[in-house]
Design a protein around this nucleic acid. Structure first.
Length: 424
RNA sequence: CGGGCUGUAGUAUACCGGUAGUACAAGUGCUUUGGGAGCAUUUAGACUGGGUUCAAUUCCCAGCAGCCCGACCA
């Protein structure tokens, strides 16, 4: 994409109404726009990141048997009454509104009811199970206090998968697969080294749920990590009894702040019972389905990546979720430079490399460099009078290629540039 | 929901009981081009409502909005 055609602009100043690093950098870079507290629009660059994260999650969910669908945002009061979660005294973060005819509807804050209700119509036999439907959608929670930029919003984009299994054993097998899929997701988006599977409270059907907690001071949770075993315990279940059952020793645990980027949860028959969600087994006996839930907030995940990987110059995107693989800069308004950069841009596009081309004229070199640092593409390729002179012995003209995370770059030819960027 | 702080151009800010200044952004012209460049010029602003006052953007009250701390987080 040509940067001259990108309507968003970078800002030098900190937004006055944000203090978190993720919001500051994402707003300054033009990735997101704040609509109101806890509500953000995703601008072109931000949406690219979100979609890349979405695709990684989709691949991992499909790999363990997930089937993507889309449940509605407007929710029918009746189905929530079945599970006793319509009442504001039970769930205090509902957004509710009224139909013209006076009927009440709610804006989805989670999906158990919707899935249970839908699947009741389609699941009758053991032959229909197990099932792993999931969706990506915006959900709404009327938080009393949203904060930390996109880490905790009132409207946010998430992935929710639900498992519908015949029995506990089948459920456990999937649950273990889901754990691995989650580890793979957080590894692929670049925060695996800071993310710990964390034991947390499990509700009435299992002793624990499992959270995936990424270390950052921006997080809201306190966890205790055993670094050798690479697992952690949430403060909410940090008791001697729990530590003993997990065979963890207090002296091996380190207290840290972390943000919950995902969680998986065994639901047992908590929802299948009120929805009478049953199947007939081989003997014709009716059995309740065993459920599990598996969620990831994509905006929070994106914000977390910014929080933990950014440096003092700006965002550092991992290759896997960067809006573009490379930021190509044409320095100065020299015509030879502009022509050459344009040619390189076209070649990169033809080679299938995702490239943001800073073709804006009249800007100083410093401004373009600062923008490139703030926007955080993993590679920066500079074409300038100087770079073109720097490769006299070869046929190609020089391009200075540098990683976002490194201080010094090197001069490469156009062919080398394409070769390197095609293989990242 | 309890406590605290704050609302001034698109953004970030300053001063002031007598109707507002600066920087960046934007428009125009010229110069400049390896770390947010310079000169000239133009455009653009006091959250809303009420009160006090000769006069309120400034003081007071309420509302609304934002941020922070805490509580909450199915």
């Amino acid at each position: 994409m040509r940067q001259s055609k990108l309507f968003t602009k970078t800002r030098k100043e900190m937004p006055a109404d944000e203090t978190s690093k993720n919001a500051e950098l994402l707003i300054r870079g033009g990735f997101i726009h704040k609509e109101m507290a806890g509500v953000y629009s995703y601008l072109p660059l931000g949406l690219k990141v979100l979609k890349k994260i979405e695709n990684i999650i989709r691949e991992e969910m499909d790999k363990i048997g997930g089937t993507e669908m889309r449940t509605s945002v407007l929710q029918n009061k009746e189905i929530w009454e079945k599970s006793n979660r319509w009442d504001d005294a039970v769930v205090d973060n509902w957004f509710k509104t009224k139909l013209k005819n006076g009927g009440e509807v709610g804006l989805s804050f989670t999906n158990e009811e919707a899935y249970s209700d839908i699947l009741k119509q389609y699941v009758n036999s053991y032959k229909d199970l197990p099932l792993y439907p999931y969706d990506f959608k915006n959900i709404f929670r009327n938080e009393t206090r949203s904060k930390s930029g996109i880490l905790r919003g009132r409207e946010f984009y998430w992935k929710a998968l639900y498992s519908f299994s015949k029995d506990e054993r089948e459920h456990e097998m999937f649950y273990e697969k889901a754990k691995e899929a989650y580890k793979s997701i957080f590894g692929r988006v670049g925060i695996g080294h800071l993310t710990y599977m964390t034991f947390a409270s499990g509700g009435s059907f299992s002793k624990f749920s499992h959270e995936f907690q990424t270390l950052t001071g921006a997080g809201e949770d306190t966890i205790y990590i055993d670094e050798n075993k690479a697992i952690a315990v949430n403060k909410e279940v940090y008791t001697d009894e729990v530590l003993e059952s997990l065979q963890l020793k207090k002296e091996n645990l380190v207290e840290k702040r972390a943000v919950e980027v995902g969680n998986i949860f065994s639901l047992g028959t908590k929802f299948s019972a009120p929805f009478d969600l049953k199947y007939k087994n081989e003997k014709g006996e009716e059995k309740l389905i065993i459920m599990g839930s598996y969620g990831i907030g994509l905006g929070r995940l994106m914000g977390t990546v910014v929080e933990v990987l950014a440096d003092d110059k700006g965002i550092v995107w991992p290759q896997s979720i960067a809006p573009f693989a490379v930021h190509l800069l044409a320095l100065g308004d020299d015509e030879t430079v502009l022509k050459e950069a344009d040619k390189i841009y076209e070649s990169l596009l033809k080679a299938g490399v995702e490239v943001l081309f800073d073709d804006r004229i009249g800007l100083s070199a410093g401004e373009k460099f600062s923008d490139a640092d703030l926007l955080g593409m993993p590679w920066r390729a500079v074409v300038s009078v100087r770079s073109l002179k720097d490769l006299p012995a070869q046929i190609g003209k020089g391009i200075e290629l540098k990683k976002r995370t490194e201080e010094k770059g090197k001069i490469v030819s156009e062919d080398e540039l394409i070769k390197i960027l095609k293989n990242v």
